[in-house]
Amino acid sequence: MVKFLLQRVLGLAVTMFFVSIMVFAIMELPPGDYAERYAFRKFSGTGVTLSEADIQSIRVDLGLDKPPWERYISWIGGIITRFDFGPAFAFETSVNKVIGQRIWLTLAILFSTLILTYLIAIPIGIYAAIRRHSIADYSLTVFSYLGLALPNFLLALVLLYISVTAFGSSVGGLFSPEYANAPWSFAKAVDLLQHLIVPTIVLAWSATALQIQTVRATMLDEINKLSVAAARARGVPETRLLLKYPARLAINPVVSTIGFDINRIFSELPIVALVLGLPELGELLIKSFLDLDMFVAGAILLILTFMIVFMNFLSDIVLAMLDPRVRLQGG
């Protein structure tokens, strides 16, 4: 198990190294750089004519004149040693400040969505498999597919409408107006959570549809295994039997796709966040690419990929704990 862990940690580090190079390459890809964009923004329409030398001096000011490998090293070095993601040009501050609040909100939505998805999908998938072809099975399947079929923005709007009219909460945003500038308190935290409910439900609803079907299908495979019949033939009570044998294996595919789920939820997040007026990272990523604000884009990409790679690492470990075949045969 120690060897297994070491292997995975090493794999994580190597993957992140290559990911950082790829992210940096993507940051470099768009034609032009921020120096040109800056010059355009500052002086267009003012009648000032800029020479190539002026732009070059802006470039030197911003540190964009150095060769790519040097900029890569100083960028990644800053992240590793000082946790500093570099300057955010368009905001004229540091990336850390720009991303700061949004990252916590994004992570909060990502994880609450994941947890809600699994809390719903795993028991329902297991139940649907046990009651296969029953009315309950079909209605749960249809209901979960609704989440997948209905566009997220529509769901978000409908749920927003319901929460405002039926529960009297404020429209969108992160906080109700009375808490927006208030210092942190328990009430403010509760207010924040209430505003996270709608996006979490919208995103989880579409994610559960897939996971319910995955759990249900694996569960059906497992229920028909001879080992289950053998356990039944030695007198194990039915509920305990189903939980101990097939259900335990039915969650394996869910665990192994945690990274995949994070990625999908993150991709669906911007539209929901736009409708609900939530400041999150996805929308900022698109904007910063349009602005050629490369360090902001790079930081978001790097953080997201790190999340995915790290969750894959976690799912490997959880899988190894769940399944001795992975643990003892080296996966």
């Binding site: 001879l226 053998a230 030695r234 399944d323």
Partner: peptide, 18 residues
């Protein structure tokens, strides 16, 4: 299992691997 026990054709599949 208590009074009537049963063994099956496939010893590999008769045990749960986990």
């Amino acid at each position: 299992g208590g009074e009537v026990a049963m063994i099956f054709q496939e010893p590999t599949a008769s045990f749960s691997p986990v």
